[in-house]
């Protein structure tokens, strides 16, 4: 398969996701407003217990990153399950293109669309609660953010191939990976509070390290007592995770597609 076909597949699959954001404009409002409800509640909880204002920043940043995790869960991991339900999966499989290109297109489109929502949450949250946001090292901050997303969507591509095997349980498993992941990845509090080894285990989800590093760069003084690992170390691990997940996704897709084909799970069957 030529690079041209690969590239056209990526663009073709990313296109509806990007365009979809603007097609129904009210969704942008809902997508920003809905996470803000939860974020606001956590800000008020911190205020109720007399936390320094930076903790409100933790909650807002966590709320913005949740948009990415939700996108990975529901629009990457579960996507092939939705496609199976709507009858598109078979079309993907007979198309003369790379499955990796399809997954990559899903990731690029989802990432771009979700960035609009995440930026909205941060902007509105910061203005609403007057949260101090001062990035000390702009380039490093951007690098950590980008690498977190590459690793995260790599994980999404891997999960997508695993979810290929599942029917109705895919929905419930995505549901299951919400609150527990919010907890173990420290979406609303510094992950170090969970203890070193738990935080290390949770680092398999790239947002854990990404959030910790971003918080260190946003609130260096406060994070001195809460940081999990130095930013440079987290950056290195994130780079490793990104490569590992994309490699595993490539291998996993082939393996699970083959397995699903043999076990007859590529079409709906009373599930």
């Amino acid at each position: 398969m030529s690079w041209r076909t690969f590239w056209r597949t990526v663009v073709g699959r990313a296109y509806p996701r990007f365009i979809g954001v603007w097609r129904e404009k009210s969704w942008v409002v809902f997508d920003v407003f809905f996470p803000l409800l939860q974020v606001s509640a956590y800000v008020y909880i911190y205020r109720a217990i007399g936390a320094p204002p930076e903790f409100a920043g933790f909650a807002v940043l966590g709320g913005a990153m949740i948009a990415y995790w939700m996108n990975v869960l529901w629009s990457m991991a579960s996507q092939l399950y939705w496609e199976k339900e709507s009858g598109n999966l078979q079309l993907y499989l007979i198309a003369p293109t790379s499955r990796m290109a399809i997954l990559l297109g899903m990731a690029v489109g989802g990432l771009t669309a979700t960035t609009v929502r995440a930026a909205g949450v941060i902007l509105v949250g910061a203005l609403l609660f007057r949260i101090p946001l001062q990035v000390s090292h702009g380039a490093l901050f951007f690098g950590v953010f980008l690498l977190t997303l590459v690793a995260l969507y790599g994980l999404g591509m891997l999960l997508s191939s695993v979810f290929l095997l599942w029917g109705r349980e895919a929905w419930h498993l995505s549901n299951l990976f919400m609150e527990p992941v919010y907890l173990f990845s420290g979406f609303y509090f510094p992950v170090r509070a969970l203890g070193f080894w738990v935080a290390l285990a949770a680092s398999v989800i790239p947002i854990t390290l990404g959030l910790d590093a971003l918080r260190q760069l946003l609130y260096p003084r406060l994070m001195e007592q809460f940081r999990f690992l130095p930013v440079e170390t987290e950056l290195g691990i994130l780079a490793g995770l990104a490569v590992l997940f994309i490699f595993l996704a490539h291998r996993g897709l082939r393996f699970f597609e083959d397995l699903a084909r043999r076990e007859g799970r590529l079409t709906l069957r009373g599930q």
Binding site: I45, G50, F55, E179, Y182, L183, F187, F189, A193, L194
Partner: peptide, 11 residues
């Protein structure tokens, strides 16, 4: 999640 928020911050 609430437990850890309290453990980290609350007196």
């Amino acid at each position: 999640i609430l437990v850890f928020m309290y453990l980290v911050v609350a007196q």
